[in-house]
């Protein structure tokens, strides 16, 4: 299997805080990779450097052999990287389906079209994407009325609109009921299984992580301290130490930040 994403020596400091230090990893095609770690470990900062929201202090990121460093988020998106945010970010003054349509309009390079009716474009594709995340029945609702969990699912639909090769999901299930979490991650796993897309996700719910991730990276204070399959990670004393200083591990509740 070929490598989709290659990350080498990625580092970032904020003033005195070294949020990310010398992070290295590869992502294979079709891989479902979990990036875990306690609050403030540097997960979101890593994501922000992967898709252009933050310039790294050091390090390289390449997608299919092309460097992503210095590119703005929009260019990285065009290269086939989708993103969902820890704190959801959607167009609040639009309906659910319009949010997805915007992504499709941009994908089809029609954002400068001045005379078509935006709401009539790509309706079927948008509905199909909403179907995928079980949001079809809410298509006409105002985005500002949605429950937080639904916003997360909407973000996933938006992120899938341009058929990305790589999907970065920052705490996709935060704010959801346990049953919803399982369903959403099962869905994501299914999308990965169909092929064509690799996923990196962060998550606090360890059940979700162990149930689906092909491989797990553990980040602590900006450094990768462990890497491996679910059972490797569970058995790793360093990881146990980090999570609540050993003892009753991996029951950690997800934070809804």
């Amino acid at each position: 299997m070929s490598t989709v994403l290659q990350v080498r020596g990625l580092s970032k400091s904020f003033g005195g805080i070294r949020a990310v230090r010398d992070v290295n990893f590869d992502l294979a095609e079709g891989e479902f990779l979990a990036l875990i770690g306690p609050n403030g470990a540097g997960k979101t900062t890593c994501f922000n450097m992967l898709n252009g929201y933050l310039p790294p202090d050091e390090g390289t990121v390449s997608l299919g052999g092309q460097s992503l460093i210095g590119k703005p988020p929009r260019d990285i998106w065009r290269m086939g990287v989708g993103r969902t945010f820890q704190i959801t970010s959607t167009f609040m003054s639009m309906t659910v389906v319009e949010n997805v349509q915007m992504a499709l309009i941009s994908h089809h390079r029609r954002v400068f079209d001045l005379f078509s009716r935006a709401t009539r474009l790509y309706v079927d594709e948008a509905m199909a994407l909403l179907d995928l995340v079980s949001m079809r029945d809410q298509a006409g609702r105002a985005c500002s009325e949605l429950a937080y969990g639904d916003l997360k699912r909407l973000e996933l639909a938006i992120a899938l609109a341009h058929e990305p090769a790589l999907l970065l999901m920052d705490e996709p299930t935060a704010g959801m009921a346990p049953s919803e979490r399982v369903a959403l991650m099962a869905l994501t796993a299914e999308i990965v299984a169909r092929g064509g897309v690799s996923v990196v996700f962060t998550e606090h719910d360890m059940d979700v992580v162990f149930a689906h991730a092909h491989r797990i990276l553990v980040l602590n204070r900006g450094e990768i301290i462990a890497e491996g399959s679910g059972s490797d990670i569970r058995a790793n004393p360093l990881v146990q130490e980090v999570y609540l200083g050993g003892g009753a591990v991996f029951e950690t509740e997800a934070s809804d930040a």
Binding site: S93, S106, F112
Partner: peptide
């Protein structure tokens, strides 16, 4: 009502999201 106008409202609503769907905000 056009894609241009909708995207403009989108940029107003959330620059982050607009960038994340490929818009040069």
């Amino acid at each position: 009502y056009s894609p241009f106008g909708y995207v403009l409202r989108g940029v107003r609503d959330s620059q982050t999201r607009a960038e994340a769907i490929g818009v040069d905000t």
